[in-house]
């Protein structure tokens, strides 16, 4: 890890068959960064996260996570996937879902320990869901499920948190609480949040990357706002909260 750079993507190209998804994308993330990757649906945002996780390999380009290969660095990453892919009829309780965050910490065939349960209860507490720990996943609302999966990501005790559309189905009141939680976590860990909803680029985020197959902008939020309109190819009204912000983001690609 040079100069506290924990995620270093250099000139990434990726395509699904003949369809190019990412072209020459370079992103750097430093310790304690809070980066939001924004861009339209199908712009390659989720693909970037999967490359960082080593779930897919880029066609070209290099990936370093914590100075290592993504597969070796996985255990330091907490991941919140998009939630429409799950079968919510699956017979599993909230606690069981969150315990999956501890799966890799125990050897194959070992039971979860008391410590695991404790960590999972705390993670559920952080998202205000511990009172539902014995409920079935299928009995929850969309927003509650999202909170459970956030708790699962936290239960891995990550050094880097990857969130794919984390506020897609939670109510606005909880969004506020959620961002405050992320801000608190951000003191210790780096966060990458992917979203197509630019209104969530709120006060709490200091850096943005605008991605639509190629990277339109990567740097501090302040300077990048006008770039978003360019990328979406129509005027975009941004909800920004005017707060003093002294982040001096670097441009790695323009």
């Amino acid at each position: 890890m040079k100069n506290g750079v924990i995620v270093d993507l250099q000139h990434i190209f990726f395509s699904y068959g003949d369809v190019p998804v990412l072209e020459d994308v370079s992103i750097k993330l430093k310790q304690n960064d809070f980066l939001s990757i924004i861009g339209p649906n199908g712009g390659g945002k989720t693909t970037i996260l999967k490359i960082i996780l080593g779930l897919i390999e880029p066609d070209k380009g290099s990936v370093f996570v914590f100075g290592n290969s993504p597969k070796a660095a996985r255990k330091f990453i907490g991941y919140l996937p998009q939630l429409f892919t799950f079968d919510y009829d699956f017979p599993v309780s909230i606690m069981d879902v969150v315990l999956m965050g501890r799966l890799g910490k125990r050897g194959l065939g070992r039971s979860y320990t008391k410590e695991d349960y404790q960590i999972c209860l705390e993670a559920l507490g952080e998202v205000g869901m511990e009172y539902l720990k014995d409920t079935q996943i299928g009995d929850l609302s969309g927003g509650q499920r999202q909170r459970v999966f956030i708790a699962r990501a936290l239960a891995t005790n990550p050094k880097l948190l990857l969130l794919d559309e984390p506020v897609a189905s939670v109510d606005t009141r909880w969004q506020q609480t959620f961002y405050e939680l992320l801000q608190e976590l951000n003191k210790e860990i780096a966060i990458i949040m992917v979203t197509h909803d630019i209104s969530v680029v709120s006060t709490y985020i200091d850096k943005i990357a605008c991605l639509n197959r190629r990277l339109y902008y990567h740097g501090s939020k302040k300077e990048g706002m006008h770039k978003i309109s360019e990328m979406y190819e129509y005027p975009v009204q941004l909800i920004t909260h005017d707060t003093p912000h002294s982040s001096s983001g670097e441009r790695t690609n323009d």
Binding site: L55, Y79, D87, F90, V92, D96, L103, R152, T156
Partner: peptide, 16 residues
């Protein structure tokens, strides 16, 4: 159980 519910996440946690 984890594999059946969420194969991708199990993979990330380091389970083969």
């Amino acid at each position: 159980q984890a594999l059946s519910f969420d194969e991708e996440f199990s993979e990330i946690t380091g389970v083969p």
